[in-house]
C-alpha cells in the first residue's frame, strides 16, 4: 500500500499529458503515415493500401524537386546566417559593452513577433521594383547611390530563397545570441585566467578554451533553427504567397490538401517533413540521453 502511495500520485499527475500526447502527437502521426500509404487522392474515395508508392511518385513531380531544393537553400542560409550573426552579437556583448541589458532586449525583441508580421513587413522591404519603381530596400540603395546592390530579392530565380532567409535570420539571431551569451557566461573565469597564465593570447583563449565549451550550445541552436527552417510555412506565405518561385514542402503540402484536395499526397509530403526534422532531432535526443547517463 505504501508503495502504491509512492508512485500513484506521480502517475496521476503525468497521465493527462501522456494521454494528450498519445492522441494528438503520436496518434495523429500514425494516422498521417497510414493516410500517406493509401490512394485516397480525393476527399470522397475510401483509399486502399498502396505501400510506399506515393513516396516514390512524389519525386517524379518537378515541383517537389524544386521545393526540396528551396528548403535546402533556405535552411543552409538561415541556420548558418543566424548562428554566425547570433554568435557575433554574443561575442560583442560578452566583451562588456555599456548598456548591455538594453542591447540584449533590443536584439531579443524580434523573436516576440510572429513570422507572419515579419513577413508582411519584409514583403515590402524586399520589393523587387528597381530604378524609378523601387520601394523598400531597393529604394534605400537607390538613394544611397548603391544602385548596383538592387536586385530582385525573393523573386530571383537562383538565389531567391537566400533572400527569403534574411527575415528569418533577422528574427531568430537575437535568440541565438541569448543562447550563446549564456554559453559564454558559463565558461568559468578561472579557466580563462589559467590559460592566460600559461601564456595564451586572447585569441587563443577563445580558440582553445571558450569555443570548445560552446559546442553543446551550438548544437542546441542548430537543432532549434534546423527544425524551424524545415517546417517553414508562415513566413513564406506572408512574403510571397503560394507561388512556385518560393515553394517549400510545407506550402506544397497545404496546396495538395486544401487546393488540389489530395489528402494522400499532402500526407506524403507531411511524412517527408517529419522525417527530415527527425534527422535533426533524433541524433540530438540520443546524444543528450547518452550524456545524461554518463553524468
Amino acid at each position: 500500500m505504501t508503495r502504491v502511495r509512492r508512485w500513484l500520485p506521480g502517475l496521476l499527475l503525468v497521465t493527462p499529458s501522456i494521454i494528450a500526447i498519445a492522441v494528438f502527437v503520436y496518434g495523429m502521426l500514425g494516422w498521417n503515415f497510414q493516410l500517406a500509404m493509401t490512394d485516397k487522392h480525393d476527399e470522397v474515395s475510401e483509399g486502399s493500401f498502396v505501400g510506399l508508392e506515393n513516396f516514390f511518385t512524389l519525386w517524379d513531380q518537378k515541383r517537389w524537386g524544386i521545393s526540396v531544393n528551396h528548403a535546402i537553400v533556405f535552411t543552409v542560409v538561415f541556420v548558418f546566417g543566424a548562428l554566425l550573426l547570433g554568435w557575433l552579437l554574443a561575442f560583442l556583448m560578452e566583451k562588456g559593452i555599456r548598456g548591455e541589458g538594453t542591447f540584449r532586449a533590443v536584439y531579443l525583441f524580434p523573436m516576440a513577433i510572429s513570422f507572419v508580421a515579419t513577413g508582411v513587413v519584409w514583403r515590402w522591404l524586399m520589393n523587387s521594383g528597381q530604378g524609378e519603381r523601387a520601394v523598400g530596400l531597393n529604394r534605400l540603395f537607390d538613394s544611397l547611390g548603391l544602385e548596383f546592390l538592387q536586385w530582385q530579392w525573393f523573386r530571383d530565380p537562383d538565389w531567391g530563397m537566400a533572400a527569403m532567409a534574411i527575415p528569418a535570420i533577422w528574427q531568430m539571431s537575437g535568440y541565438v545570441m541569448a543562447l550563446f551569451l549564456a554559453g559564454f557566461r558559463g565558461v568559468p573565469e578561472d579557466l580563462r585566467e589559467a590559460a592566460r597564465v600559461d601564456g595564451c593570447g586572447e585569441w587563443q583563449v577563445y580558440r582553445h578554451i571558450v569555443l570548445p565549451m560552446l559546442r553543446p550550445v551550438t548544437l542546441s541552436a542548430l537543432i532549434i533553427l534546423g527544425h524551424i527552417s524545415l517546417k517553414v510555412f508562415d513566413l513564406i506565405v506572408a512574403v510571397s504567397g503560394k507561388q512556385i518561385i518560393t515553394d517549400v514542402p510545407a506550402v506544397f503540402m497545404w496546396v495538395a490538401v486544401f487546393d488540389s484536395h489530395d489528402p494522400a499526397k499532402g500526407a506524403t509530403i507531411a511524412s517527408y517533413i517529419v522525417l527530415a526534422v527527425s534527422v535533426f532531432v533524433i541524433p540530438y535526443l540520443v546524444w543528450t540521453l547518452r550524456r545524461e547517463r554518463s553524468s
Binding site: D42, R63, I66, I244, I245, D247, V255, D259, H261
Partner: peptide
C-alpha cells in the same frame, strides 16, 4: 475543378522559370 486548376497553376509557375 480545383485539382485541375492547381495543376495548371503549377505548370504556369514552372513555365515562368
Amino acid at each position: 475543378n480545383d485539382a485541375w486548376r492547381v495543376a495548371i497553376n503549377e505548370a504556369v509557375g514552372l513555365f515562368h522559370g
